[in-house]
Design a protein around this nucleic acid. Structure first.
Lengths: 253, 253
DNA sequence: TAGTGGTCTAGACCACCGT
DNA sequence: CGGTGGTCTAGACCACTAA
């Protein structure tokens, strides 16, 4: 990375692609993260060092880092430095899983059981959501999440085969902890944001059996598309949530 | 409002209630909003004027306003000034209603029909959620939201009677537009944030008829508690969403 | 104690809006 | 054009962490 050409006024006047200095710094930092210059959990250089490197003031670097921290790409820790965010951290566990027990705050002991993991050809809808060609190889995972030994979430997960070579049922079963932490450390894929679409549907005979509910009983269907850097979709997840003892929590701000 | 006593160091060292200057400014501004010093839609004083009034630098006022804008209490407009946010604005309409049509982006023509509006005594659960005593007077509203003339949302709304004197079915029916805009302009109650709990449930015979679905069919139950200033709960809303042609959309960041 | 992020200031200039 | 918010700077000091 090198010193920036700083022409805020000139750039703004001439070009529709103007962005302020701190946004350009943000882009450079994001590229560094994407390129693996600093890995998840690692410390990035101090604000003063980055300011010197980019030839801008500390306040400008600060504003770029502020936004990256708001995006959960970086984590600030006063007195220690700024770190690359990771899905390993405790506070990241429930960032994408908005499920809570109806009574009490503690989600209880969560356990995951992998039901299937196979490579197959992408169905039309999955291919479109993942921006693949129909028929391209995808990895399909089915897994059951239980809270306090009670099944609550039945997930069907689709991943681009090219990005997840070597992902097998054994590998998944051997791993305890959040899937996104595994994806991050083993496949170098960092999940940045997700969009969910929720509907109420009736449990089919098969899914009802897995979830321990009666066939036809209402369950919450959660379709998630997860994105990595540059808004690239890298996961489709169709979950069925049994909302008898749990609910989907959402804060509106 | 008067000049602040600025003792950042001393306050921090001695007291666990320390907060930086810009947070104190934020509190003062919030009080001004709550007291109605500036009303929804109005222009607040410029950053420089506020800085002079509080005896701090413009940058400090700026940081306070930044947070209030992030909280959707204020809206910045470059070149014009900073305005008090209002539920009248178009962009506020779908801040709390996370419902979208399955196909296409435009939600289509939305219409509201008030089915009932009566004053009654608060049931136990409603009283607890609204921090009232059981049996205190509440206003109960039932209304049906339709998109393109198709019923989609059946809402049951509970409001503290003391805050909504004079709220009647006629008054509701006469008003077109978002309820929160009515609450804001007619009753001086500004909804700041909300928390929703979602479950999949089976439609009862009565609700199924209103929503135009089959009895027993899965519908999305959305329980919302809405808060005004100082995190005071002022509304409980239990909605049933027919998710045949629409879905609940949620962005995870 | 040294180094980090967090706060605050004062001042400059730019971008945008309405008159 | 004047006034507003938006960006950028340079420098000071505070709060926190780890050695």
């Amino acid at each position: 990375m090198s010193r920036l050409a700083r022409l805020p006024g000139a750039v703004a006047a001439d070009s529709p692609t103007f962005s302020p200095l701190y946004r350009q710094i943000k882009v450079l930092l994001t590229r560094g993260l994407q390129a693996g210059e600093w890995k998840p959990g690692e410390l990035i250089p101090s604000e003063t060092e980055l300011a010197a490197r980019f030839g801008v003031s500390q306040g400008t670097v600060r504003k770029a880092i502020d936004e990256l921290a708001a995006d959960h790409l970086l984590v600030r820790r006063q007195g220690r430095g700024t770190f690359v965010a990771t899905h390993q951290e405790a506070r990241a566990q429930f960032r994408f899983l908005r499920l809570r027990p109806d009574h009490g705050g503690d989600p209880g002991a969560m356990s995951s059981r992998v039901l299937a993991c196979r490579r197959t050809r992408a169905p039309v809808d999955i291919a479109r959501a993942l921006q693949l060609r129909t028929g391209e190889t995808v990895v399909q995972v089915r897994r059951l999440l239980s809270f306090d030994a009670r099944p609550v979430v039945l997930d069907e997960i689709w991943l681009p085969g090219a990005l997840f070579r070597g992902l097998t049922a054994d590998r998944l079963a051997a791993y305890t902890g959040p899937l996104y932490a595994l994806f991050e450390s083993e496949f170098g894929i960092r999940m940045i944001r997700a969009a969910e679409r929720l509907r109420a549907v009736a449990a089919t005979r098969a899914t009802a059996a897995d979830l321990g509910v009666a066939p036809g009983e209402p369950v919450l269907q959660v379709e998630r598309v997860t994105y990595t850097y540059e808004d690239r979709p890298v996961e489709v997840r169709r979950g069925l949530y049994a909302t008898g003892r749990h609910h989907y929590f959402n804060e509106l701000i």
